[in-house]
Computed example of a mutant assay.
Amino acid sequence: MNASRGLATRLCALALLTASGGLLASACADNESSLFVRMRMARSGDCTVSCSPGEAFWTEDAIDAAYVGSHSATILVGNQIVERGDSDVLRTETSRVQLYEAEVRVSDMEGNAVNEGYVVPINGVVDPGTSSDAGYNCTEVLLLDGATMDSLRVQAAELRRDVEVVTTMVLRGRTLGGQEVETAEWSYPVRVCFGCSRCVDTIPPICCSDSSSEDCKDQEDVEGSCPGARGIQDCRNLGQTCAEHIAEFGL
């Protein structure tokens, strides 16, 4: 009788261990679906962003490495963890996710590594989902750091054409209840050129570096582009003529 009871106890313990292992495996599997990247948000005419899945988005960035030293993008992040708070029993909401870091690597179109990857801090709180709808918020992610941009600038100058790369990111966060969550890998293409944008010098050119001159006070502003899109460059933002700026790279 005691032997039978001991066997039953051991079998129950094994069953519980197996079940708990399954639950743990399920939790790990669900980890990448709880938090996810939805899209790269577009910037409107005044370069502002609205953080909603119904707003405009971009499917590719195009930048001129002659005028930027690194490149970031506004990423929309979704949270599918359901609400846990209940005011009737004074239970606080623990399913909000505080974003804290992004792991980014860059590769060429054939999948070859362009850099060794890097981890950068991010911020933002993503509210929990309600029913079948996820909660959303934006965060700014460094797609190309300075070292990567330096490398791509040289390549683009030597090839005299766009260099196409893919940035792949994993975003990490922590719920207010202390649970670690991360997104699945999400990839986004970026095209990098060198000196392909139109750059405008003032007339007279001295106004590029000294806009306080009497001859420069009626100069019209040049409308630039938002980060992630190529556009016209104003020499006054460079502090020198366009040719002088490009020549400084020695490429």
Results as ranks from 00 to 15, higher is better:
190 V>R: 00
164 E>F: 10
200 V>R: 03
191 R>S: 10
194 F>R: 03
203 I>H: 04
142 L>N: 08
147 A>D: 15
187 S>P: 10
212 S>T: 15
159 L>V: 14
172 R>G: 10
181 V>W: 01
207 C>K: 01
197 S>N: 08
207 C>D: 07
150 D>A: 14
195 G>L: 06
164 E>V: 12
169 M>A: 12
150 D>Q: 13
180 E>V: 10
159 L>C: 05
204 P>E: 11
200 V>E: 12
151 S>A: 14
141 V>T: 09
188 Y>L: 09
141 V>Y: 03
147 A>V: 15
193 C>Y: 05
165 V>G: 08
179 Q>V: 14
191 R>D: 09
207 C>F: 01
199 C>A: 09
166 V>R: 06
206 I>S: 11
188 Y>T: 13
162 D>H: 11
145 D>Q: 11
202 T>Q: 12
154 V>K: 09
158 E>S: 10
157 A>K: 05
199 C>W: 00
147 A>Q: 15
158 E>A: 11
151 S>K: 11
163 V>Y: 01
138 C>H: 02
153 R>M: 12
203 I>C: 05
176 L>N: 01
137 N>W: 12
175 T>R: 00
188 Y>F: 15
143 L>V: 15
200 V>I: 14
168 T>N: 04
180 E>Q: 09
153 R>S: 14
160 R>Y: 11
171 L>Y: 04
169 M>R: 01
145 D>K: 02
193 C>I: 07
145 D>W: 00
143 L>F: 13
201 D>K: 05
187 S>H: 11
207 C>E: 02
190 V>C: 02
206 I>Y: 01
